[in-house]
Amino acid sequence: MAMPALQAQKYFTREGKVSFFSSTPIEDIEAHNSKATSVVDAETGRTEFAVLIKAFQFEKALMQEHFNENYMESGTYPKATFKGQFSDWGSVDLAKDGTYPVEVKGDMTIHGVTNPVAANGTFTVKGGQVQAVSTFKIAVEDYGIAIPSVVRENIAKELEIRVDCNLQPLNR
């Protein structure tokens, strides 16, 4: 008798949410993007993630313009990507309700610069729905993003990144 391949599939989203937050004494900066794509291989724990830089929405239009043109140069570097592997993936069962803490390690590319990243997160499975959430920090200077001295004190050296994805089985 053949066993059903519940885990031997990929889960994906085209509507992942990514936000970042920068807090300084002068001004808080926050942006949201709900168009991230992500794929998780349920068999191996490998994952890939991509987000279009221009899809980040800011409260102030001028902030969004400066972010795209002056800092991120989104015409030259249109997206940020992550390719990695969840550690201890054998303890995660995307076919069974539960909360599964995970760590992911891989390579993040932002602004044309690739760096190793490790982050903790959680997979929550409830009623066949799979949600992946993680919050981590990155240093702006690690990705070659130049901040002009006149506004350097307005932008935090580290940004808090939050990722929230509702994943669907690819072959359903």
Rank of each mutant, 00 (worst) to 15 (best):
A36E: 04
V151R: 00
G106R: 01
P4R: 10
H32Q: 14
A55F: 07
A156G: 15
V40C: 02
T47R: 04
S38E: 05
V140C: 05
D107C: 02
G112T: 12
P101Y: 03
L6T: 13
E158M: 03
T114D: 05
K137V: 01
F58T: 09
A5R: 00
R162S: 14
H66G: 08
P169T: 11
E65T: 14
E158A: 07
F123M: 04
F20H: 08
L62A: 14
N120W: 03
A146M: 06
Y11A: 05
G75H: 12
V51S: 10
Q129K: 09
T114F: 04
L170M: 10
T24I: 07
N166C: 05
F136Y: 07
E48H: 10
S91D: 14
V102G: 03
R172W: 05
L167V: 08
V18G: 02
K10C: 07
I26K: 13
E48W: 07
M1A: 13
W89K: 07
S19N: 14
L159A: 14
P116S: 08
Y143A: 07
Q9I: 11
K79D: 09
F49Q: 03
G112V: 13
G16I: 00
F21L: 10
I110V: 15
V151S: 12
Q129I: 06
Q129H: 09
N120H: 08
D93M: 08
F58Q: 13
Y11N: 04
L62K: 11
Y71C: 09
Q131E: 00
K137S: 11
K83S: 14
N166L: 08
H111D: 09
F21S: 14
N70E: 11
V140H: 04
P148Q: 07
N120A: 15
A50I: 08
R46I: 04
G106V: 05
V150Y: 01
K137I: 00
Y100C: 12
F136W: 00
G121S: 07
A42K: 06
Q57C: 12
D88Q: 13
V51H: 01
P116A: 14
F20R: 00
V133A: 04
N70S: 12
I26S: 15
Q64M: 08
V40I: 15
V117A: 12
T37M: 12
E141H: 05
T124H: 06
T114Y: 05
Q9C: 02
Q168M: 10
T47G: 10
V150F: 12
E160A: 01
I29V: 15
F123C: 06
G127E: 09
E158N: 10
N120P: 03
T99L: 07
E59S: 15
G75R: 11
V133K: 05
M1W: 00
T24A: 15
T124S: 14
P4H: 09
A156F: 02
G45E: 01
S34G: 15
G127S: 10
Q129T: 13
I155A: 07
I110K: 04
S19G: 09
K60I: 07
T122W: 00
Q9P: 02
Y143K: 02
T99F: 01
R172Q: 06
V133C: 06
E59N: 09
H111F: 00
T99E: 11
V163H: 03
T124C: 10
T76F: 12
Q129S: 12
M108G: 03
G90C: 03
I145R: 05
V130W: 00
G128R: 04
I53H: 01
H66D: 12
S149C: 04
A146E: 15
R172T: 10
T109A: 07
E103F: 03
S22M: 06
G75D: 15
L159M: 02
F21P: 14
